[in-house]
Design a protein around this nucleic acid. Structure first.
Lengths: 131, 131
DNA sequence: ATAATACATTCTCATATAGGAATATGTAAA
DNA sequence: TTTACATATTCCTATATGAGAATGTATTAT
């Protein structure tokens, strides 16, 4: 089985860096395709294809104006990603506390070991040096 | 050019739904591979391969304990995704306001058009019915 | 030493890419 | 009604994938 289609959901659609750039660019106001091409320095067919993906998963809205197509980011479709990643927020907060505590511990060690050599070399029995 | 590698960054790594499930499962505490296999109902080699991807982009930490490998989500690595998606928060707030305002406008229309037929049919001059 | 357990890796394969080139479609201008 | 402009689609190709099956490796138990 290959990877899930880029059009299967917002997660897959935003995995492509160029598509994230397009979403950034279209967040403030709607823009015609040509502006995106010029701004991001991509080929026009590439941009059109990226926009199709973004449209299929609802990440952008389109509107025709004469012969141009005006695209705009649909921020609402990004919300689920923000919410999923947000469920981990409390964990990285915990980790930050632990890192802070470790750093403080380390400061004490550094002081008491001030004249020790090879401070940065690996210690054989350090469980954090598995690789 | 094919899609960017799943190991190229966290965005690509979490595009796979199974990997997101694994991250959810490993967020609270570290777990051996066997537990993930049992919990998610995947084949063991599949889980190992997903874990490798997650490890390569820093989304999980590993530690050996006897013959088991204990994996744990590294929430810190999810933070960039949360921050990128967060840059759109103010936009979806704006959109919500606009939607709310539109809904309120519509309520008035409904009342004044209360006995009109074909209320749900498209109106030719409705700019929201471009497609 | 041998077996059992827990994971990891390798192999094969069908498939969906992203970019480039060429072409098609749709709209406005002359 | 040609012509120009703006965008979309199609065709092509190399490549990375995820699953399944088989095998490899490391560690503990007997």
């Amino acid at each position: 089985m290959p990877r899930a289609a880029t059009t299967s959901d917002a997660f897959n659609a935003v995995a492509e860096p160029r598509r994230r750039e397009i979403l950034n660019y279209l967040a403030l106001q709607e823009r015609p395709v040509g502006d995106i091409v010029e701004s991001l320095g991509l080929e026009q067919p590439s941009v059109s294809k990226h926009l199709r993906v973004l449209r299929e998963v609802g990440l952008v809205h389109v509107r025709r104006d004469g012969r141009q197509m005006l695209y705009r980011t649909n921020a609402e479709a990004i919300r689920p990603l923000h919410e999923w990643t947000g469920t981990f927020e409390r964990f990285w907060r915990h980790q930050l506390h632990r890192i802070k505590e470790r750093a403080e511990e380390k400061m004490k060690t550094v002081r008491s070991d001030f004249n020790v050599r090879n401070f940065n070399s690996r210690r054989k029995d350090d469980p954090n040096n598995s690789h």
